[in-house]
């Protein structure tokens, strides 16, 4: 019986240790997931914090410089917009009017520097444009 108790104690310590490591890892890793309007209200709150923002690519704003691999566009949700810069190539489904998620940090100049662009709802199965995506 005593050995059983010791086993349980060991198991609990093991789990507690794992949870502690796990939580400390999370503190540095999670990102806020925001809509453009939520973000635009208090952009200062997110300076140098990892953020994910969900919005639409403003149709007239996409600007691509192939030599420096710089992509600039405005991310909008119909009410507010934020300028986004991205070094690298956009995913296939990236295009004006498309719903995307940008991941990155906002600088003091208010420009959002994306480290990744995800095409929202990588709806491998569902027909694009069928689902009412704009209703957030």
């Amino acid at each position: 019986m005593r050995s059983a108790r010791r086993t349980w104690l060991g198991a609990i310590l093991l789990v507690a240790g794992a949870v502690a490591i796990f939580l400390s890892g999370m503190r540095h890793s999670y990102q806020y997931f925001q809509t453009v309007s939520e973000f635009a209200q208090t952009p200062g709150a997110y300076v140098d914090r990892g953020v994910r923002i969900n919005g639409m690519v403003d149709s007239s704003s996409v600007e691509w410089q192939p030599d420096s691999l710089l992509l600039r566009f405005r991310l909008t949700d119909g009410q507010s917009w934020i300028p986004v810069e991205y070094h690298g190539v956009a995913p296939d489904l990236f295009q004006a009017g498309q719903n995307v998620v940008v991941e990155g940090k906002v600088g003091h100049d208010g420009v959002f520097r994306a480290t990744q662009i995800l095409v929202k709802c990588p709806s491998k199965y569902e027909p694009v444009g069928e689902s009412p995506k704009s209703s957030l």
Partner: peptide, 14 residues
């Protein structure tokens, strides 16, 4: 009341 996400690097590290 706000959505937080964990990215691929977190999963890989864990």
């Amino acid at each position: 009341g706000r959505s937080l996400t964990l990215g691929a690097p977190w999963f890989s590290a864990m």
